[in-house]
Design a protein around this nucleic acid. Structure first.
Lengths: 260, 260
DNA sequence: CGGAAGATTGATAACTCTCAAAAATAGTGG
DNA sequence: CCACTATTTTTGAGAGTTATCAATCTTCCG
Protein backbone atom coordinates (compact mmCIF):
# COMPACT_ATOMS: atom_id res chain seq x y z
CA UNK A 1 0.00 0.00 0.00
CA UNK A 2 1.28 3.39 0.84
CA UNK A 3 4.92 3.45 1.58
CA UNK A 4 6.40 5.28 4.50
CA UNK A 5 7.48 7.90 2.07
CA UNK A 6 4.03 8.66 0.89
CA UNK A 7 2.34 8.40 4.23
CA UNK A 8 3.20 11.96 5.12
CA UNK A 9 1.72 13.35 1.96
CA UNK A 10 -1.98 12.92 2.60
CA UNK A 11 -3.09 14.30 -0.76
CA UNK A 12 -1.58 11.30 -2.45
CA UNK A 13 -4.65 9.20 -2.31
CA UNK A 14 -5.87 6.91 -4.99
CA UNK A 15 -9.18 8.49 -5.94
CA UNK A 16 -10.35 5.40 -7.80
CA UNK A 17 -9.95 2.59 -5.32
CA UNK A 18 -11.83 0.02 -7.39
CA UNK A 19 -11.60 0.51 -11.12
CA UNK A 20 -8.35 0.84 -13.02
CA UNK A 21 -7.49 4.46 -12.33
CA UNK A 22 -7.22 6.62 -15.43
CA UNK A 23 -3.72 7.98 -15.44
CA UNK A 24 -3.25 11.66 -14.85
CA UNK A 25 -2.01 12.05 -18.38
CA UNK A 26 -5.14 10.48 -19.82
CA UNK A 27 -7.28 12.85 -17.82
CA UNK A 28 -5.32 15.77 -19.10
CA UNK A 29 -5.48 14.69 -22.73
CA UNK A 30 -9.21 14.13 -22.34
CA UNK A 31 -9.63 17.84 -21.80
CA UNK A 32 -8.73 18.31 -25.44
CA UNK A 33 -10.06 15.26 -27.23
CA UNK A 34 -11.72 11.95 -26.55
CA UNK A 35 -8.87 9.48 -26.55
CA UNK A 36 -9.23 6.25 -28.47
CA UNK A 37 -8.43 2.95 -26.83
CA UNK A 38 -5.02 2.68 -28.41
CA UNK A 39 -4.19 6.18 -27.31
CA UNK A 40 -5.23 5.48 -23.77
CA UNK A 41 -3.04 2.40 -23.85
CA UNK A 42 -0.06 4.33 -25.13
CA UNK A 43 -0.51 7.01 -22.50
CA UNK A 44 -0.92 4.49 -19.75
CA UNK A 45 2.10 2.59 -20.92
CA UNK A 46 4.33 5.61 -20.88
CA UNK A 47 3.23 6.74 -17.45
CA UNK A 48 3.63 3.35 -15.87
CA UNK A 49 5.75 2.80 -12.78
CA UNK A 50 6.11 6.29 -11.37
CA UNK A 51 8.89 6.57 -8.83
CA UNK A 52 8.38 8.24 -5.48
CA UNK A 53 10.41 11.39 -4.98
CA UNK A 54 10.96 13.46 -1.89
CA UNK A 55 9.68 16.98 -1.45
CA UNK A 56 12.22 19.65 -2.31
CA UNK A 57 13.84 17.47 -4.89
CA UNK A 58 14.94 19.36 -7.96
CA UNK A 59 13.70 17.70 -11.11
CA UNK A 60 15.23 20.11 -13.59
CA UNK A 61 18.26 22.30 -13.11
CA UNK A 62 18.45 25.55 -14.99
CA UNK A 63 21.13 25.25 -17.60
CA UNK A 64 21.37 21.47 -17.51
CA UNK A 65 20.78 19.33 -20.55
CA UNK A 66 18.24 16.67 -19.58
CA UNK A 67 17.76 13.58 -21.72
CA UNK A 68 14.31 12.91 -20.35
CA UNK A 69 11.10 14.62 -19.44
CA UNK A 70 9.34 14.36 -16.11
CA UNK A 71 5.69 13.52 -15.88
CA UNK A 72 4.05 14.38 -12.59
CA UNK A 73 1.75 11.48 -11.79
CA UNK A 74 0.95 12.50 -8.25
CA UNK A 75 2.06 15.54 -6.31
CA UNK A 76 3.09 19.13 -6.95
CA UNK A 77 6.05 20.89 -8.47
CA UNK A 78 6.90 24.43 -9.41
CA UNK A 79 9.04 26.12 -12.02
CA UNK A 80 11.18 28.96 -10.74
CA UNK A 81 14.08 31.24 -11.46
CA UNK A 82 16.59 32.53 -8.96
CA UNK A 83 18.20 35.94 -8.94
CA UNK A 84 21.75 36.58 -7.71
CA UNK A 85 20.46 38.41 -4.66
CA UNK A 86 18.61 35.28 -3.61
CA UNK A 87 15.19 36.39 -4.76
CA UNK A 88 13.05 33.79 -6.41
CA UNK A 89 10.21 34.03 -8.88
CA UNK A 90 7.93 31.06 -9.21
CA UNK A 91 6.85 30.78 -12.83
CA UNK A 92 4.18 28.14 -12.62
CA UNK A 93 2.92 25.05 -10.92
CA UNK A 94 2.93 21.49 -12.21
CA UNK A 95 0.15 19.20 -11.11
CA UNK A 96 -0.65 15.58 -11.92
CA UNK A 97 -0.70 15.04 -15.65
CA UNK A 98 1.72 17.86 -16.38
CA UNK A 99 4.84 17.24 -18.37
CA UNK A 100 7.74 18.97 -16.85
CA UNK A 101 10.17 19.89 -19.53
CA UNK A 102 8.84 18.71 -22.85
CA UNK A 103 10.15 21.70 -24.68
CA UNK A 104 13.61 21.71 -23.29
CA UNK A 105 14.19 18.05 -23.65
CA UNK A 106 13.41 18.44 -27.32
CA UNK A 107 15.04 21.69 -28.21
CA UNK A 108 16.79 23.91 -25.79
CA UNK A 109 18.37 23.98 -22.39
CA UNK A 110 16.04 24.80 -19.52
CA UNK A 111 16.05 28.47 -18.63
CA UNK A 112 14.58 27.71 -15.24
CA UNK A 113 14.50 25.02 -12.58
CA UNK A 114 11.72 22.75 -11.42
CA UNK A 115 11.37 21.47 -7.88
CA UNK A 116 8.86 19.30 -6.07
CA UNK A 117 6.71 20.91 -3.42
CA UNK A 118 5.80 17.70 -1.65
CA UNK A 119 6.52 14.02 -1.85
CA UNK A 120 5.37 13.05 -5.31
CA UNK A 121 5.30 10.29 -7.86
CA UNK A 122 7.09 11.10 -11.07
CA UNK A 123 7.83 9.22 -14.28
CA UNK A 124 11.07 9.90 -16.07
CA UNK A 125 10.39 9.45 -19.76
CA UNK A 126 13.43 9.28 -22.00
CA UNK A 127 13.19 11.92 -24.67
CA UNK A 128 13.29 9.40 -27.50
CA UNK A 129 10.37 7.47 -26.08
CA UNK A 130 8.28 10.58 -25.92
CA UNK A 131 9.21 11.48 -29.46
CA UNK A 132 8.17 8.03 -30.58
CA UNK A 133 4.85 8.40 -28.84
CA UNK A 134 4.19 11.76 -30.43
CA UNK A 135 5.15 10.45 -33.86
CA UNK A 136 2.91 7.46 -33.57
CA UNK A 137 -0.04 9.37 -32.15
CA UNK A 138 -0.46 12.70 -33.87
CA UNK A 139 -3.67 13.43 -32.00
CA UNK A 140 -1.81 13.16 -28.74
CA UNK A 141 0.81 15.42 -30.17
CA UNK A 142 -1.86 17.93 -31.04
CA UNK A 143 -3.44 17.67 -27.62
CA UNK A 144 -0.12 18.31 -25.95
CA UNK A 145 0.38 21.31 -28.19
CA UNK A 146 -2.94 22.62 -26.99
CA UNK A 147 -1.84 22.02 -23.45
CA UNK A 148 1.25 24.08 -24.17
CA UNK A 149 -0.93 26.88 -25.42
CA UNK A 150 -2.83 26.82 -22.18
CA UNK A 151 0.47 27.03 -20.33
CA UNK A 152 1.23 30.06 -22.39
CA UNK A 153 -2.09 31.66 -21.59
CA UNK A 154 -1.45 31.01 -17.93
CA UNK A 155 1.87 32.80 -18.15
CA UNK A 156 0.22 35.81 -19.73
CA UNK A 157 -2.46 35.88 -17.09
CA UNK A 158 0.21 35.72 -14.40
CA UNK A 159 1.93 38.67 -15.99
CA UNK A 160 -1.31 40.61 -15.75
CA UNK A 161 -1.76 39.42 -12.21
CA UNK A 162 1.68 40.34 -10.97
CA UNK A 163 1.91 43.52 -12.97
CA UNK A 164 -1.43 45.12 -12.37
CA UNK A 165 -3.35 43.68 -9.47
CA UNK A 166 -2.98 44.45 -5.78
CA UNK A 167 -2.03 41.93 -3.13
CA UNK A 168 -5.55 40.83 -2.33
CA UNK A 169 -6.36 40.25 -5.97
CA UNK A 170 -3.08 38.51 -6.67
CA UNK A 171 -3.59 35.87 -4.05
CA UNK A 172 -7.28 35.48 -4.81
CA UNK A 173 -6.56 35.07 -8.47
CA UNK A 174 -3.92 32.46 -7.85
CA UNK A 175 -6.30 30.49 -5.66
CA UNK A 176 -9.05 30.68 -8.26
CA UNK A 177 -6.70 29.43 -10.93
CA UNK A 178 -5.53 26.50 -8.88
CA UNK A 179 -9.09 25.59 -8.03
CA UNK A 180 -9.96 25.33 -11.70
CA UNK A 181 -6.82 23.45 -12.66
CA UNK A 182 -7.07 21.00 -9.80
CA UNK A 183 -10.79 20.63 -10.26
CA UNK A 184 -10.17 19.55 -13.84
CA UNK A 185 -8.20 16.57 -12.59
CA UNK A 186 -10.53 15.70 -9.78
CA UNK A 187 -8.49 17.07 -6.93
CA UNK A 188 -11.14 19.40 -5.51
CA UNK A 189 -13.75 17.98 -3.21
CA UNK A 190 -17.39 18.98 -2.95
CA UNK A 191 -16.63 21.69 -0.41
CA UNK A 192 -14.23 23.53 -2.68
CA UNK A 193 -11.33 22.22 -0.69
CA UNK A 194 -8.07 20.97 -2.12
CA UNK A 195 -4.50 20.15 -1.23
CA UNK A 196 -2.15 23.08 -1.83
CA UNK A 197 1.32 22.33 -0.49
CA UNK A 198 2.53 25.90 -0.91
CA UNK A 199 3.82 27.79 2.08
CA UNK A 200 3.58 31.54 2.48
CA UNK A 201 7.09 32.05 1.30
CA UNK A 202 6.24 30.28 -1.94
CA UNK A 203 3.05 32.29 -2.25
CA UNK A 204 5.20 35.37 -1.92
CA UNK A 205 7.53 34.21 -4.69
CA UNK A 206 4.52 33.35 -6.81
CA UNK A 207 2.91 36.75 -6.54
CA UNK A 208 5.94 38.98 -6.22
CA UNK A 209 4.99 39.99 -2.70
CA UNK A 210 6.90 39.66 0.53
CA UNK A 211 5.99 36.78 2.78
CA UNK A 212 4.99 39.16 5.55
CA UNK A 213 2.57 40.87 3.26
CA UNK A 214 1.26 37.54 2.07
CA UNK A 215 0.59 36.61 5.64
CA UNK A 216 -1.37 39.76 6.30
CA UNK A 217 -3.27 39.49 3.06
CA UNK A 218 -4.21 35.91 3.85
CA UNK A 219 -5.59 37.09 7.15
CA UNK A 220 -7.69 39.58 5.29
CA UNK A 221 -9.03 36.89 2.98
CA UNK A 222 -9.80 34.73 5.97
CA UNK A 223 -11.52 37.50 7.88
CA UNK A 224 -13.69 38.14 4.84
CA UNK A 225 -14.55 34.47 4.98
CA UNK A 226 -13.41 33.91 1.44
CA UNK A 227 -10.92 31.15 2.10
CA UNK A 228 -9.47 28.91 4.71
CA UNK A 229 -5.86 27.89 4.33
CA UNK A 230 -4.28 25.54 6.79
CA UNK A 231 -2.50 22.24 6.89
CA UNK A 232 -1.43 22.74 3.29
CA UNK A 233 -5.05 22.65 2.26
CA UNK A 234 -7.08 25.46 0.79
CA UNK A 235 -10.82 25.72 1.14
CA UNK A 236 -12.65 28.25 -0.95
CA UNK A 237 -15.56 29.33 1.18
CA UNK A 238 -17.31 31.56 -1.32
CA UNK A 239 -16.16 30.95 -4.84
CA UNK A 240 -18.25 33.62 -6.51
CA UNK A 241 -17.13 36.29 -4.15
CA UNK A 242 -13.52 35.22 -4.34
CA UNK A 243 -13.66 35.38 -8.12
CA UNK A 244 -15.21 38.80 -7.95
CA UNK A 245 -12.43 40.01 -5.69
CA UNK A 246 -9.80 38.55 -8.00
CA UNK A 247 -11.38 39.64 -11.23
CA UNK A 248 -11.05 36.04 -12.27
CA UNK A 249 -12.37 34.78 -15.58
CA UNK A 250 -11.57 31.17 -16.24
CA UNK A 251 -11.82 31.26 -20.01
CA UNK A 252 -8.06 31.54 -20.38
CA UNK A 253 -7.81 28.08 -18.84
CA UNK A 254 -10.32 26.48 -21.15
CA UNK A 255 -10.11 25.15 -24.65
CA UNK A 256 -12.41 25.68 -27.57
CA UNK A 257 -10.81 23.67 -30.36
CA UNK A 258 -11.70 24.88 -33.80
CA UNK A 259 -11.65 21.53 -35.47
CA UNK A 260 -10.76 18.07 -34.35
CA UNK B 1 29.21 45.44 -35.41
CA UNK B 2 25.78 43.93 -35.46
CA UNK B 3 24.55 42.25 -32.38
CA UNK B 4 22.22 39.36 -32.42
CA UNK B 5 21.38 35.80 -32.56
CA UNK B 6 23.29 35.05 -35.71
CA UNK B 7 26.46 36.18 -34.15
CA UNK B 8 25.97 33.68 -31.37
CA UNK B 9 25.39 30.78 -33.73
CA UNK B 10 28.59 30.64 -35.73
CA UNK B 11 27.55 27.45 -37.48
CA UNK B 12 24.74 29.28 -39.18
CA UNK B 13 26.16 30.83 -42.28
CA UNK B 14 24.75 33.95 -43.79
CA UNK B 15 22.84 32.55 -46.74
CA UNK B 16 22.60 35.82 -48.63
CA UNK B 17 26.06 36.92 -49.58
CA UNK B 18 25.06 39.87 -51.75
CA UNK B 19 21.51 39.41 -53.03
CA UNK B 20 18.23 41.26 -52.37
CA UNK B 21 17.36 42.07 -48.79
CA UNK B 22 15.93 39.02 -47.04
CA UNK B 23 12.42 39.30 -45.70
CA UNK B 24 11.96 39.68 -41.99
CA UNK B 25 10.49 36.21 -41.76
CA UNK B 26 13.47 34.65 -43.51
CA UNK B 27 15.81 36.39 -41.11
CA UNK B 28 13.84 35.08 -38.20
CA UNK B 29 13.78 31.51 -39.48
CA UNK B 30 17.48 31.71 -40.13
CA UNK B 31 18.09 32.01 -36.44
CA UNK B 32 17.00 28.43 -36.11
CA UNK B 33 18.12 26.72 -39.27
CA UNK B 34 19.72 27.45 -42.57
CA UNK B 35 16.83 27.79 -45.01
CA UNK B 36 17.00 26.04 -48.34
CA UNK B 37 16.18 27.89 -51.53
CA UNK B 38 12.67 26.51 -51.76
CA UNK B 39 12.02 27.44 -48.17
CA UNK B 40 13.22 30.97 -48.72
CA UNK B 41 10.94 31.17 -51.72
CA UNK B 42 7.96 29.93 -49.77
CA UNK B 43 8.63 32.39 -46.97
CA UNK B 44 9.11 35.25 -49.37
CA UNK B 45 5.95 34.34 -51.20
CA UNK B 46 3.83 34.31 -48.12
CA UNK B 47 5.12 37.62 -46.86
CA UNK B 48 4.67 39.39 -50.17
CA UNK B 49 2.64 42.59 -50.46
CA UNK B 50 2.45 43.82 -46.91
CA UNK B 51 -0.21 46.47 -46.38
CA UNK B 52 0.49 49.70 -44.57
CA UNK B 53 -1.38 50.13 -41.32
CA UNK B 54 -1.73 53.13 -39.06
CA UNK B 55 -0.33 53.34 -35.56
CA UNK B 56 -2.83 52.46 -32.85
CA UNK B 57 -4.63 50.04 -35.11
CA UNK B 58 -5.79 46.93 -33.33
CA UNK B 59 -4.74 43.82 -35.21
CA UNK B 60 -6.29 41.28 -32.87
CA UNK B 61 -9.21 41.74 -30.54
CA UNK B 62 -9.37 39.72 -27.39
CA UNK B 63 -12.18 37.22 -27.70
CA UNK B 64 -12.53 37.52 -31.47
CA UNK B 65 -12.13 34.59 -33.79
CA UNK B 66 -9.64 35.60 -36.48
CA UNK B 67 -9.37 33.61 -39.68
CA UNK B 68 -5.89 34.88 -40.43
CA UNK B 69 -2.59 35.57 -38.79
CA UNK B 70 -0.71 38.84 -38.96
CA UNK B 71 2.93 38.96 -39.92
CA UNK B 72 4.72 42.14 -38.97
CA UNK B 73 6.96 43.00 -41.90
CA UNK B 74 7.93 46.44 -40.72
CA UNK B 75 7.01 48.26 -37.55
CA UNK B 76 6.08 47.47 -33.97
CA UNK B 77 3.12 45.98 -32.17
CA UNK B 78 2.35 44.90 -28.66
CA UNK B 79 0.17 42.31 -27.02
CA UNK B 80 -1.82 43.49 -24.04
CA UNK B 81 -4.66 42.77 -21.70
CA UNK B 82 -7.02 45.28 -20.18
CA UNK B 83 -8.53 45.18 -16.73
CA UNK B 84 -12.02 46.50 -15.91
CA UNK B 85 -10.54 49.40 -13.96
CA UNK B 86 -8.75 50.54 -17.10
CA UNK B 87 -5.34 49.23 -16.15
CA UNK B 88 -3.35 47.63 -18.93
CA UNK B 89 -0.61 45.05 -18.92
CA UNK B 90 1.56 44.78 -21.98
CA UNK B 91 2.49 41.15 -22.51
CA UNK B 92 5.07 41.39 -25.21
CA UNK B 93 6.27 43.20 -28.28
CA UNK B 94 6.10 42.09 -31.88
CA UNK B 95 8.82 43.20 -34.22
CA UNK B 96 9.48 42.56 -37.91
CA UNK B 97 9.37 38.84 -38.64
CA UNK B 98 7.03 38.07 -35.77
CA UNK B 99 3.81 36.25 -36.37
CA UNK B 100 1.04 37.79 -34.46
CA UNK B 101 -1.46 35.16 -33.56
CA UNK B 102 -0.32 31.85 -34.96
CA UNK B 103 -1.60 29.91 -32.02
CA UNK B 104 -5.02 31.42 -31.80
CA UNK B 105 -5.73 31.29 -35.46
CA UNK B 106 -5.08 27.57 -35.28
CA UNK B 107 -6.65 26.57 -32.02
CA UNK B 108 -8.22 28.95 -29.60
CA UNK B 109 -9.66 32.39 -29.30
CA UNK B 110 -7.19 35.12 -28.45
CA UNK B 111 -7.01 35.82 -24.75
CA UNK B 112 -5.44 39.21 -25.40
CA UNK B 113 -5.35 41.98 -27.96
CA UNK B 114 -2.60 43.17 -30.27
CA UNK B 115 -2.15 46.76 -31.38
CA UNK B 116 0.35 48.58 -33.55
CA UNK B 117 2.67 51.04 -31.89
CA UNK B 118 3.58 52.93 -35.02
CA UNK B 119 2.73 52.96 -38.69
CA UNK B 120 3.66 49.49 -39.87
CA UNK B 121 3.54 47.10 -42.74
CA UNK B 122 1.64 43.94 -42.04
CA UNK B 123 0.70 40.85 -44.04
CA UNK B 124 -2.57 39.17 -43.34
CA UNK B 125 -2.07 35.49 -44.00
CA UNK B 126 -5.21 33.37 -44.18
CA UNK B 127 -5.00 30.58 -41.69
CA UNK B 128 -5.32 27.89 -44.34
CA UNK B 129 -2.40 29.28 -46.31
CA UNK B 130 -0.20 29.19 -43.26
CA UNK B 131 -1.27 25.66 -42.51
CA UNK B 132 -0.39 24.67 -46.06
CA UNK B 133 3.01 26.24 -45.71
CA UNK B 134 3.70 24.44 -42.47
CA UNK B 135 2.54 21.13 -43.91
CA UNK B 136 4.69 21.49 -46.98
CA UNK B 137 7.76 22.67 -45.09
CA UNK B 138 8.19 20.75 -41.86
CA UNK B 139 11.50 22.43 -41.17
CA UNK B 140 9.81 25.79 -41.20
CA UNK B 141 7.19 24.39 -38.93
CA UNK B 142 9.88 23.25 -36.57
CA UNK B 143 11.64 26.58 -36.72
CA UNK B 144 8.44 28.39 -35.87
CA UNK B 145 7.94 26.04 -32.96
CA UNK B 146 11.36 27.00 -31.73
CA UNK B 147 10.41 30.63 -32.12
CA UNK B 148 7.36 29.97 -29.98
CA UNK B 149 9.60 28.48 -27.32
CA UNK B 150 11.63 31.65 -27.30
CA UNK B 151 8.44 33.63 -26.88
CA UNK B 152 7.70 31.43 -23.94
CA UNK B 153 11.10 32.03 -22.42
CA UNK B 154 10.60 35.74 -22.85
CA UNK B 155 7.32 35.55 -20.97
CA UNK B 156 9.02 33.76 -18.11
CA UNK B 157 11.80 36.30 -17.99
CA UNK B 158 9.22 39.08 -17.91
CA UNK B 159 7.56 37.39 -14.99
CA UNK B 160 10.87 37.42 -13.17
CA UNK B 161 11.41 41.01 -14.17
CA UNK B 162 8.05 42.32 -13.06
CA UNK B 163 7.85 40.15 -9.99
CA UNK B 164 11.28 40.55 -8.49
CA UNK B 165 13.26 43.46 -9.84
CA UNK B 166 13.05 47.11 -8.86
CA UNK B 167 12.10 49.91 -11.20
CA UNK B 168 15.63 50.63 -12.39
CA UNK B 169 16.27 47.01 -13.19
CA UNK B 170 12.90 46.52 -14.83
CA UNK B 171 13.42 49.26 -17.35
CA UNK B 172 17.06 48.39 -17.92
CA UNK B 173 16.18 44.78 -18.50
CA UNK B 174 13.49 45.65 -20.97
CA UNK B 175 15.88 47.84 -22.91
CA UNK B 176 18.53 45.13 -22.96
CA UNK B 177 16.06 42.62 -24.26
CA UNK B 178 14.83 44.86 -27.03
CA UNK B 179 18.40 45.62 -28.03
CA UNK B 180 19.13 41.94 -28.52
CA UNK B 181 15.89 41.18 -30.32
CA UNK B 182 16.15 44.16 -32.62
CA UNK B 183 19.84 43.57 -33.17
CA UNK B 184 19.04 40.09 -34.40
CA UNK B 185 17.01 41.55 -37.23
CA UNK B 186 19.43 44.30 -38.01
CA UNK B 187 17.54 47.16 -36.45
CA UNK B 188 20.32 48.36 -34.16
CA UNK B 189 22.96 50.67 -35.53
CA UNK B 190 26.63 50.76 -34.66
CA UNK B 191 26.06 53.15 -31.77
CA UNK B 192 23.66 50.86 -29.99
CA UNK B 193 20.81 53.03 -31.09
CA UNK B 194 17.45 51.80 -32.30
CA UNK B 195 13.90 52.87 -32.89
CA UNK B 196 11.61 52.19 -29.94
CA UNK B 197 8.17 53.69 -30.49
CA UNK B 198 7.09 53.17 -26.91
CA UNK B 199 5.97 56.09 -24.81
CA UNK B 200 6.37 56.31 -21.07
CA UNK B 201 2.83 55.23 -20.49
CA UNK B 202 3.49 52.04 -22.46
CA UNK B 203 6.74 51.51 -20.58
CA UNK B 204 4.70 51.74 -17.41
CA UNK B 205 2.25 49.13 -18.62
CA UNK B 206 5.14 46.95 -19.70
CA UNK B 207 6.86 46.97 -16.37
CA UNK B 208 3.93 47.28 -14.01
CA UNK B 209 5.07 50.71 -12.83
CA UNK B 210 3.26 54.03 -12.94
CA UNK B 211 4.14 56.40 -15.73
CA UNK B 212 5.34 58.98 -13.25
CA UNK B 213 7.73 56.53 -11.76
CA UNK B 214 8.87 55.46 -15.18
CA UNK B 215 9.64 59.05 -15.94
CA UNK B 216 11.75 59.46 -12.83
CA UNK B 217 13.50 56.17 -13.34
CA UNK B 218 14.35 57.12 -16.91
CA UNK B 219 15.88 60.29 -15.60
CA UNK B 220 18.00 58.23 -13.30
CA UNK B 221 19.15 56.02 -16.17
CA UNK B 222 19.97 59.08 -18.19
CA UNK B 223 21.85 60.77 -15.40
CA UNK B 224 23.92 57.62 -14.99
CA UNK B 225 24.67 57.95 -18.69
CA UNK B 226 23.37 54.49 -19.40
CA UNK B 227 20.80 55.37 -22.03
CA UNK B 228 19.38 58.14 -24.08
CA UNK B 229 15.71 57.97 -24.96
CA UNK B 230 14.15 60.59 -27.14
CA UNK B 231 12.27 60.94 -30.38
CA UNK B 232 11.06 57.35 -30.02
CA UNK B 233 14.65 56.18 -30.28
CA UNK B 234 16.71 54.49 -27.62
CA UNK B 235 20.47 54.70 -27.48
CA UNK B 236 22.32 52.42 -25.15
CA UNK B 237 25.33 54.39 -24.07
CA UNK B 238 27.06 51.70 -22.03
CA UNK B 239 25.76 48.28 -22.78
CA UNK B 240 27.89 46.39 -20.30
CA UNK B 241 26.95 48.65 -17.45
CA UNK B 242 23.30 48.64 -18.40
CA UNK B 243 23.30 44.86 -18.45
CA UNK B 244 24.98 44.79 -15.08
CA UNK B 245 22.33 47.09 -13.65
CA UNK B 246 19.56 44.96 -15.13
CA UNK B 247 21.07 41.62 -14.26
CA UNK B 248 20.57 40.78 -17.90
CA UNK B 249 21.71 37.49 -19.38
CA UNK B 250 20.77 37.04 -22.99
CA UNK B 251 20.88 33.26 -23.09
CA UNK B 252 17.13 33.02 -22.70
CA UNK B 253 16.82 34.72 -26.07
CA UNK B 254 19.19 32.42 -27.88
CA UNK B 255 18.79 29.01 -29.40
CA UNK B 256 20.97 25.97 -29.09
CA UNK B 257 19.30 23.38 -31.28
CA UNK B 258 20.02 19.84 -30.26
CA UNK B 259 19.98 18.21 -33.66
CA UNK B 260 19.78 19.19 -37.29
C1' DC C 1 -0.58 78.75 -34.83
C1' DG C 2 -3.16 76.01 -31.68
C1' DG C 3 -4.79 71.91 -29.80
C1' DA C 4 -3.51 67.41 -28.25
C1' DA C 5 -0.56 64.10 -26.63
C1' DG C 6 3.39 63.21 -24.01
C1' DA C 7 6.89 64.44 -20.57
C1' DT C 8 8.09 66.51 -16.31
C1' DT C 9 7.59 68.18 -11.63
C1' DG C 10 5.87 68.66 -6.84
C1' DA C 11 3.55 67.02 -2.97
C1' DT C 12 1.27 63.56 -0.48
C1' DA C 13 -0.52 59.14 0.40
C1' DA C 14 -0.24 54.29 0.53
C1' DC C 15 0.86 49.95 -0.31
C1' DT C 16 4.42 46.95 0.43
C1' DC C 17 9.03 45.86 2.28
C1' DT C 18 12.52 44.86 5.66
C1' DC C 19 14.07 43.73 10.09
C1' DA C 20 13.41 41.32 14.17
C1' DA C 21 11.31 38.45 17.34
C1' DA C 22 7.62 35.63 19.25
C1' DA C 23 4.20 32.08 18.61
C1' DA C 24 2.60 28.06 16.47
C1' DT C 25 3.28 23.95 13.84
C1' DA C 26 5.54 20.12 11.86
C1' DG C 27 9.15 16.82 11.80
C1' DT C 28 12.47 13.72 14.23
C1' DG C 29 14.59 10.81 17.49
C1' DG C 30 14.60 8.71 22.02
C1' DC D 1 4.25 8.91 23.03
C1' DC D 2 6.96 12.81 24.52
C1' DA D 3 10.65 16.00 24.02
C1' DC D 4 13.31 18.76 20.97
C1' DT D 5 14.45 21.16 16.86
C1' DA D 6 13.48 23.13 12.53
C1' DT D 7 10.23 25.27 9.87
C1' DT D 8 6.45 28.11 9.25
C1' DT D 9 3.31 31.51 10.66
C1' DT D 10 2.28 35.61 13.01
C1' DT D 11 3.07 40.20 14.95
C1' DG D 12 5.13 44.91 15.58
C1' DA D 13 7.39 48.88 14.06
C1' DG D 14 9.45 51.77 10.87
C1' DA D 15 11.31 52.71 6.40
C1' DG D 16 10.90 53.06 1.57
C1' DT D 17 9.66 52.34 -2.91
C1' DT D 18 6.03 53.34 -5.74
C1' DA D 19 1.33 55.27 -6.66
C1' DT D 20 -1.82 59.00 -7.14
C1' DC D 21 -3.26 63.62 -8.10
C1' DA D 22 -2.77 67.71 -10.37
C1' DA D 23 -0.44 71.22 -12.64
C1' DT D 24 3.03 72.77 -15.87
C1' DC D 25 5.99 72.40 -19.59
C1' DT D 26 7.29 70.43 -23.96
C1' DT D 27 6.74 68.28 -28.25
C1' DC D 28 4.11 66.74 -32.03
C1' DC D 29 1.11 67.54 -35.85
C1' DG D 30 -2.60 69.28 -38.60
Amino acid sequence: MSTGLLRDCPHIVDPWPETPPPSALVIKISNFLRPRTDEVEALDLISRNPKPHRAEQILVHEGSHPDHVNLIVEGFACRYKLLPGGRRQILGYLIPGDLCNLEFALFNKPDHSVALLCDSRVVRIPTHRLVELLDRHPRIHRALSLAALIDNAILREWLLNIGQRDALQKLSHFFCEMEVRLGAIGRVDGNGSFELPVNQSALADTTGLSSVHVNRTLQRLRSHELIDLSHRRLTILDRDRLRAVAGFDETYLTVQPRRD
